[in-house]
Design a protein around this nucleic acid. Structure first.
Lengths: 113, 113
DNA sequence: TAAAGTAGTTACCTTTGCGTAACTATCAAA
DNA sequence: TTTGATAGTTACGCAAAGGTAACTACTTTA
């Protein structure tokens, strides 16, 4: 089952996963929760992401109406990425997902101090 | 970057994605939001999932403390899957993800009637 | 004796996601 | 003329995710 098939499912959860169901996309959205950011900033803000994954994820998120790409005709060129209304509606959900992990982190992976 | 590396990141969102960042896992959790279910029931309830993906996803979700596998020594054998406390804490988040798609579905994919 | 139901496993294969590194284009400044 | 900055793209390849189909083991029922 391809990504596009997920997006046409009868189940709303499956459709959501067609848009968000990868490792990096929710992290990108979470990073844009309180700021616009340029390509290079996202690359720096998100630990360990590669430019290639960033490129393709941003492109797909734009196709799915989650983020907006704004290109400024300046030199050197500047491009800013920001969440759309549809994307902004995900902010509280993404924040809860991060908070969820903080609450249950110690339980599953005991830290040695 | 492997799944296990995500789970040890310093960013809580990245850790969450180490556990949940696939197409099918959130759908499985969502399906268990209001009921326990047996293997065969999950297979029937979740459209288009394969038994193989179901097997491996259930195994990893159990390792990560999200679901509980309860085996009854009956004949024919019965196994029930249910959310743990850690898994139950995800229910409202998963429901919001489904609701989010319902709200924005028409905007992105106009239906022909 | 054969079929049916439960809960998977196994082998094999394809697709997607992701990583690394080198490369492009543009212009300004040194 | 070379360097630097921005914002990517491209080629190559590996590993993980996912799909298909056949098979196992057990017992009850027909």
């Amino acid at each position: 089952m391809k990504r596009t098939d997920f997006k046409n499912c009868s189940c709303a959860m499956q459709r959501s996963m067609g848009i968000l169901g990868t490792r990096w996309k929710p992290i990108i959205i979470y990073t844009l929760r309180d700021r616009k950011a340029r390509f290079g900033q996202l690359d720096a803000l998100i630990e360990n992401i590669s430019r290639k994954v960033l490129t393709s994820s941003l492109k797909e998120l734009e196709e799915d109406g989650i983020i907006l790409r704004e290109e400024f005709k300046e030199l050197p060129p500047r491009v800013e990425y920001a969440l759309t209304e549809k994307g902004k509606a995900l902010i509280p959900i993404m924040c809860q997902l991060a908070k969820w992990n903080e609450e249950y982190y110690e339980e599953s992976e005991p830290l040695i101090l």
